[in-house]
Design a protein around this nucleic acid. Structure first.
Lengths: 117, 117
DNA sequence: CGGTATCCCTGAGGATACTG
DNA sequence: CAGTATCCTCAGGGATACCG
C-alpha cells in the first residue's frame, strides 16, 4: 500500500469518530449543561442559573436531547409541587477528559485573544 | 464563602473557556479540516477529497474562518496555474489533545451505538 | 486548479407569554 | 417549579453554475 493511501485511511479513522462525537455534542449548550451537572445533580431552575444566557426553552430541548443520548438522567420526585432532578449518567461522565482538554485549550485561547494577537 | 458559591464559581470557570473553544471550533467542518491538515500540508482539492461530504463552498468558507483565527495558514505559490497550500499553524497543532480525546470518545460512542443500546 | 456567486432552505436559537 | 406554546430571526449549510 502506498503512503498516500495509508495516510488517507488513517485520516478517515480520525475524522469519522470525531464527527460522531460532534453530532452528539453539537450546539452551544450541550457541553455547558454536562459541565454543570458534573458538579452534582441539579434541578431545572438550578441549571438555568448555572448556565449564562440559556433560555428555558433551549434548556428544556437540550436536556431532552441529552437524555435521549443517555448522557443525562431525569428523575421526577413525587413531591408537591413536583421536583425534577437531572444527573449525569456514567456515560455522560465519560466526557470528562474531552471537557478538560477543551477547557485547557479554551483558557489558552482566551489569553491569546486578550493579548490582542 | 459558602459551598454553593464556590461550586458556582468553579463551574463558571469551566463553562466560560469551553464556550470560547466551542465558538472557534463550531460547525461540522472545522475539526475535520484541522485533522486532515494534521497529516501534512494539503491543497484545496486534496482537502476536499479527504473530508467526506464537504462542498467547495463550505471548505472555502471554513478555511477562511480558520485562517482568521490563525489556526490555518494559506500559502500561494506563483506557479502556472497557481497552487495554494494549506497548513496547520503551531496554534492549530495545539488542538492535538482536544482532537485526540474527541476521537477516543467518538470511537467508544460508535461502538455503543452499534451494539444498539 | 482553486475557488466565487447565487439561490435557497432548514433548523438552531432567541423572546415572550402562559400553565399544571 | 418545571416546563410548553408560539412566533420569529438569522446563520449554517446544500446545490448549482460560473470564472481567471
Amino acid at each position: 500500500m502506498k503512503k498516500q493511501e495509508r495516510d488517507h485511511e488513517q485520516c478517515q479513522g480520525m475524522i469519522v469518530p470525531v464527527r460522531d462525537a460532534i453530532d452528539v455534542l453539537s450546539g452551544k449548550w450541550k457541553l455547558p449543561i454536562i459541565i454543570a451537572l458534573g458538579f452534582g445533580n441539579k434541578r431545572f431552575g438550578e441549571l438555568a442559573k448555572e448556565i449564562p444566557g440559556i433560555t428555558d426553552r433551549m434548556l428544556s430541548k437540550e436536556l431532552r436531547d441529552l437524555e435521549m443520548n443517555q448522557l443525562v438522567k431525569r428523575t421526577v420526585y413525587d413531591t408537591m409541587p413536583v421536583t425534577v432532578e437531572y444527573s449525569l449518567t456514567d456515560y455522560g461522565s465519560s466526557l470528562d477528559k474531552v471537557v478538560d482538554e477543551l477547557r485547557k485549550w479554551g483558557v489558552q485561547h482566551r489569553k491569546r485573544i486578550m493579548k490582542g494577537v
